[in-house]
Computed example of a mutant assay.
Amino acid sequence: MRGRQTVRDMVLSLAVIGILVGVIYVFIPHDESADAERTAVKAVDYRVELITARRAAPYAVAAPQGLPGTWRATSVSYRASEDGKGGAWHLGMLDPEQQYASVEQSDAAPRAFIKGVTLGATKVEGKQAVGSKKWDRYQGDKYRALVREEPGVTTVVTGTAPYGRLADLAAALVAKKG
């Protein structure tokens, strides 16, 4: 009966396919809980990279100590400079509210380094007290940051997290040379 198909046959075929798709959807598991968001980004263990960076870097590499378990490390790296005399340390994290925060350190020229890791944020009025030290505040379209320039190293705590969370991360930093 070729050529005898009707619109009715097409509608019936689409209805059967729609029912089949609906049944498949019902039986496929869906995890819409808060844990689904939490497990979407995998946590990393940064201890080995931290030890390596502390041995290789010409400055004391900073990493958090004593943060609650609700903070999760998501990325870590140490890149030696081309001349082998310095490098850049990166530790990316998610705070308890699932906002991004990272620790960035380098002995490179501060201005270019800060601009790069903050995605172009600019210095704003006011300082952020973190313990007994004052950090400069930076604000950009995407990231905000706390910056501390010291002889031989610039430390930037940056991300989408609010300044208070960035200060929490900065307060937990312990800088050591390996």
Rank of each mutant, 00 (worst) to 15 (best):
L91V: 06
R47G: 11
M10R: 12
Q128H: 02
R54E: 03
L50E: 10
V61A: 03
A145R: 11
G87A: 00
T118R: 05
R55F: 05
L146A: 09
A34L: 14
P64H: 05
V130L: 02
R2Q: 14
L67V: 03
V124A: 10
Q99T: 10
Y46V: 01
R72T: 05
A53F: 01
R54Q: 08
L166W: 02
L14A: 09
P29F: 00
D168A: 14
K133R: 14
A34Y: 10
A109I: 07
G159V: 06
K115T: 15
R111A: 14
G87H: 03
L146K: 08
D168K: 14
A108K: 06
A15Q: 00
T118V: 12
M93F: 04
T122H: 15
A63I: 05
G86K: 02
R137G: 08
D9T: 04
V21E: 01
M1A: 15
R165P: 08
L169T: 00
Y46N: 00
I19D: 03
Y143C: 06
W71H: 05
P29R: 02
A36H: 13
A73K: 04
R38V: 12
S106D: 02
E82Q: 13
A121G: 07
L20D: 04
V11Y: 13
E150W: 09
A63W: 01
K133S: 14
L173N: 00
P162N: 13
L50Y: 02
M93W: 06
A60V: 09
Y163P: 07
L169N: 04
P96F: 08
P110V: 08
Y25R: 14
E37C: 06
P58K: 11
R38G: 14
M1H: 13
Q65C: 03
L50F: 01
A63M: 00
G69I: 05
R72N: 00
V7C: 09
R54C: 07
Y59I: 02
R79T: 03
V174W: 00
A43C: 02
K176D: 04
A88R: 14
W71K: 07
R111S: 15
R47L: 05
A34Q: 12
A112Y: 15
R4H: 13
G152I: 02
A57L: 08
Y143N: 11
A129C: 05
E104D: 04
A57M: 08
P64N: 01
R111V: 14
G164N: 11
T39L: 14
P64G: 01
R4V: 07
A101S: 05
G164K: 13
F113W: 04
R111L: 12
T52I: 02
T70Y: 11
G84M: 04
T74A: 05
A80C: 00
L20P: 01
D141M: 11
T118I: 10
Y138E: 05
V147C: 03
I19Y: 03
S102R: 10
Y163Q: 12
P29Y: 04
S102I: 06
D95I: 10
G131L: 09
I51H: 10
A161M: 08
P68Y: 11
K115G: 11
L173Q: 02
L169K: 06
Y100Q: 12
A129H: 12
